[in-house]
């Protein structure tokens, strides 16, 4: 069955779907790091919050679409609160402090979720529009997964347009390249960072809400996705949209096909991929600055 083109195609779609979720997560993490040298280990926690907020809105309104619209905004507000209270004062701190404070936040987030929603695994039902499966090459494939792929592509197109074609985009790219210089030009880099941070949180929340209809919504879902996201960022190179896309695709595919072809070594394949990439290019594939 491994050479069956239909099977391979379906697995490719699965890989794409995972890659798109990883892209939504890693692009925020990567650009936040590129702009401010800030590493946020609690990024996975934002993803988990997105899923739980989505679940909560869904339970109260009964509408998946309202949940999908509101949950990321809720996560963004949480992100803003953390930015003002904690992250702002950590921006110039050494990486050790940033890592440890955001590591502490992971525990706080985990127990906050357990306190509010309990330990049991839950899920958000897929909306009626996607209740039908589509048939691709005679194989049945859930249409919701195609929606995730489409959403990821749409977000990529929007981000690409904003970053490459607008004035805000050029401020952000310039800030990644040389923050001090941009600030000398009279541009408020702090404000730009705050904006990027909010968007990063929004996208983390969005991917959580979207993933809540595919993967179980449970405490600990943050941990498993965080490591994958960090690997994407390391492989793709810090601070670049292109790196986040290529890194997500590589890791998404390696994880999916690794599970299928080498179940014994399932997760090891992605680490092996990371090691190979870093041996060839220590700064990742598309770094915005030298490592």
């Amino acid at each position: 069955m491994f050479t069956d083109p239909t099977f391979l195609f379906i697995q490719t779609l699965n890989g794409l779907q995972l890659a798109m979720l990883l892209f939504l997560l890693s692009v925020g993490l990567s650009v936040i790091f590129g702009l401010m040298n800030f590493i946020n280990l609690a990024h996975g926690t934002l993803y988990m919050l997105g899923a739980y907020f989505g679940l909560w809105v869904y339970v109260n309104t009964g509408s998946f679409w309202v949940a999908l619209a509101l949950a990321p905004i809720g996560v963004m507000v949480v992100g803003m609160v953390f930015y003002v209270t904690l992250i702002k004062r950590l921006r110039t701190a050494p990486p050790l402090k940033q890592v440890l404070v955001t590591f502490g936040l992971i525990f706080v987030g985990l127990d906050a979720v357990r306190m509010s929603w309990g330990n049991l695994s839950k899920s958000i039902p897929t909306p009626d529009v996607f209740s039908q499966s589509v048939t691709i090459f005679g194989e049945i494939y859930p249409s919701y997964r195609l929606f995730i792929i489409g959403l990821g592509v749409a977000v990529f197109v929007i981000l690409y347009f904003v970053l490459e074609r607008t004035r805000i985009g050029s401020v952000i790219r310039a800030g990644v390249d040389d923050r001090d210089m941009v600030s000398c030009l009279g541009i408020n880099v702090d404000l730009a960072f705050f904006g990027v941070f909010c968007i990063g949180c929004y996208l983390a929340g969005l991917s959580g809400a979207v993933a809540g209809a595919v993967f179980p919504v449970e405490p600990g879902m943050d941990m498993s996705i965080l490591i994958l996201t960090l690997i994407v960022v390391v492989v793709g190179g810090l601070g670049s949209l292109k790196g986040a896309v290529v890194g997500s695709l590589m890791i998404g595919m390696a994880e999916t096909f690794g599970q299928v072809f080498l179940p014994q070594f399932a997760s090891v394949t992605i680490y092996a991929l990371m090691v190979v990439v870093l041996l060839v290019r220590p700064g990742g594939l598309f770094p915005t600055r030298a490592a």
Binding site: P95, L96, L230, A266, S267, Y271, M274, P282, G283
Partner: peptide, 19 residues
């Protein structure tokens, strides 16, 4: 490697053994 790269790569490599 220094700083954040060292942190992330040690993290990822240790997870490899875990996996």
């Amino acid at each position: 490697l220094g700083g954040i790269f060292f942190i992330m790569i040690t993290l990822a490599l240790s997870q490899m053994f875990y996996a």
